[in-house]
Design a protein around this nucleic acid. Structure first.
Lengths: 140, 140
DNA sequence: GTTTCTATGAGACTCATTCTCATTTAGGGG
DNA sequence: CCCCTAAATGAGAATGAGTCTCATAGAAAC
């Protein structure tokens, strides 16, 4: 991956050091486009022999989220999930209540309507959460 | 409040007993249309002299949510909020990132588009979370 | 290489929520 | 009204995701 450049750029900008652990966490988040929780990232790294602690995984994710390289998702089960956000196309999520499967959707009309709602309420919109919960076609 | 009837009906339907604690939690949730967390409900009841435990507050809310009398909100700060849902008009939320103020919104067009998205993905839609985060007019 | 100052790891800690289990209570007979 | 039994409750222990602490390791500057 050459997205390492992006990581270096961001760390440099904040006067943070480029370390093997920060690289490893970012690589792991780039290696799949899944919705990963912190523990699974921690375990994946440990299992591939990388010496890292949970604290560092959390601390690194924190930095990545702050710099918009990673998006934090809350699926309502008490564990945050993270997805690599370098691929810049915005999307929201459909979540199956039975099997947990996650599908992504984009709807420009909804996006526009959201902006109108915010405007009407005089809110300066920064982000949104839009999640549809139901049963996927295999679970109905 | 005469919504006590609704509580009795639901408890009866599930062969659960009508207790003073369950009544108190439900009353408290009806007494304001706010977005309350479990601790504030617990404290409000204790302060008005009602003998109840945190466990019972949580257990009762669980029943109320299961029976659609209460909606659970997740504002992303690690504490669930609850709102009385007897007043049946559905709404979603605008949340101020600075002062925490919550405004409600309804947009029938968005609701319709959501259904279309679910249909396109062959999901049987059960519920959704739609939250807009930004800065309210006082905080900008 | 030495200095300096940030990053890390291990494990303690926090805090919302859930669980356990001994005790109390609701509610249907008698 | 009282009894009986299963369900509900309270107190506090347990859980689990996430954060904090602090001694040590390692990067960057000199």
């Amino acid at each position: 991956m050459d997205d390492i450049r992006e990581l270096k750029r961001v760390l440099h900008k904040e006067n943070l050091r480029y370390t093997s652990q920060r690289k490893a966490v970012w690589d792991e988040l780039c290696s799949s486009s899944d919705h990963r929780d912190a523990e699974s990232i921690y375990l994946a790294l440990r299992n591939s022999g990388i010496r890292v602690s949970r604290a560092t995984v959390y601390r690194t994710i924190e930095v990545l989220v702050r710099h918009n390289m990673v998006r934090r998702l809350d699926l309502g089960d008490g564990r945050s999930r993270y997805e690599n956000k370098l691929d810049p196309k915005h999307h929201d999520h459909l979540i199956c209540l039975s099997c947990g499967r996650i599908e992504e959707f984009v709807d420009p009309d909804i996006e526009k309507l959201q902006e109108k709602v915010a405007e009407k309420h005089q809110f300066a919109l920064r982000k949104h959460i839009h999640q549809l919960f139901g049963y996927c076609k295999d679970c109905q």
